[in-house]
Design a protein around this nucleic acid. Sequence first.
DNA 1: TTAGGGTTAG
Length: 636
Amino acid sequence: MFAYKPKSFLLSLPKHISNSQIFLANSNSQLSPPLSSLPPRPSIPQTKQAHAQIIVSGLAADSPLISHLLCFLALSPSTPFHYSLSLYQSIKYPSVFATNNMIRCFAKSDSPPQSLLLFSSMLRTCVKPNNHTFTFLLQACSRALALNEGAQVHTVAVKLGFGGYVFVRNALIHLYCSCSRIECSKRLFEENASSRDVVTWNSMLTAFVRDEQIGAAEKLFEEMPERDVISWSTMISGYVQNGRLGEGLECFKQMREKGMRLNEATLVSVLSASAQLGLLEHGRLVHSLVESLNFPLTVSLGTALIDMYAKCGCIEQSKLLFKNMPKKDIWTWNVMICGLASHGIGKEALALFQRFIDEGFHPVNVTFIGVLGACSRAGLVSEGRRHFKLMTEKYSILPEMEHYGCMVDMLGRAGFLDEAVQLIEKMTVPPDPVLWATLLGACKIHGSIELGEKIGKKLLKLDPTHDGHYVQLASIYAKARKWEDVIRVRRLLVEQNTNKAAGWSLIEAQGTVHKFVAGDREHERSLEIYKMLEKIGIRIAESGYSPNVSSVLHDIGEEEKENAIKEHSERLAMAFGLLVTGAGDCIRIVKNLRVCEDCHEVSKIISRVFEREIIVRDGSRFHHFKDGKCSCLDYW
DNA sequence: TTAGGGTTAG
């Protein structure tokens, strides 16, 4: 049998396991509602009550009885191991059953390596390990990402003849996959083709997914003799985690067509895909499934729903769900803070962050991406500076590129260009060109030609294949009416043969997703769409609109430039939205790039002239257009 | 008398 060769075959000598006081019942006993599919587990207070009765009845020396209590604790969702250990230590001659359960308690605790120490001491007694022992031990190694220790356990399991047990082998596949040793998982999987069960296949599927080998995962999924809900969930999450969102949703569709039962993990992954794609109708469908199938609103599911609604433009729905969540964890708070930030509701995001702190949570890097993003999008400069300081000084969180990105964006937009430059120059890691590009955009807004030129030249050196830098630099020159420089940069752009990122916009209508690119004429209702565009053009011109062509960088005349922006993907999506939705309905659009100045202006006018609310999620944030105004207050 | 695999935030 294959065995990963560990660096050392010697397990650490067992340390003396000290007596611990019985864990006192001061923990939060309000557990999340149990999943309907799971059998009820005895809670820790219930186990303690039973323990007290055993002591009062004079049966505390009855080791099988105490072992059963230990087993209950091992089955509880989260057990501080001190109490389990005190029970275990009260057994004079622990059986393999009692020891296995103690190993399992350690494996589930915050100190999984303790189970290895117990195993070491077990090896020196007359109590012999069995197949259960190795399953729990390997689980502990996987949780601790302890590759060497796991490999030693692997060796012992093989030596003692337990290597062929399917539970042990599956635990090994899982261990090597958790420790990024996929080749070891694969060898174990291939070696035992005749004795695989569905968990063996699922473990290998997970290994491929985690290693981003989606092709291999797809092939394995096809070959599986039997697929259960976990096989489907793994495949769906594999697609979603690797950005193949449409395929994830298609896989979910197939799963439902096959009549498979759904579970929490399936729904969370599918909600994530709906959120990332901004598909509100799909997300709502999943929400209705959650309700019709009577899924309890667990922390994960509730958080995924909050995120979905926020990313699909329904921030009020997110807020309502957040308010009604019976239990929240750090993910829930982070999702809500980031959601408010993306909608530009900066002050509420900051107030929520304060509540989060007041409730005793400890912020993490993502929390501050939300907080700083909120400050940036709402122009809350002094709050942003204060929180950046708080993050580094009070919470000792090292700023990452994203944090710097928020700060540079915030300072740049507000006109603190020198401060932004100083911040970038003070960075201890090399700045991502995106930071300079952000600042270049700010130079354009504030007409800082000199600094913009300096940054633009720097960027062309750092990242010559990015077309956006040429476009920004040329627009800075254009703003300064330096036409020769505009022509020069434009020539450079052509010579570099860069690939301009194709802009697209999505709109959902009657369960179908419609995708448009600029100048698109592929849609089956293209003729009607272009007629609607003309109608829009006439109506907005009547209300005094004149086009802003500064975002167009082609060697074409003004009229052609006007046509080019008129056919931007979001204009086509908006025209289609006006065609397919009823009077007064909200139009929701998801765009991959940032909305250009002219489209932003036009969207405001359309919202007033056509009396429609238009919600656009662009590459950076949400814009809610209503009555001729945008929620971003033209600050984006 | 005890077992394994899948999920979420920028």
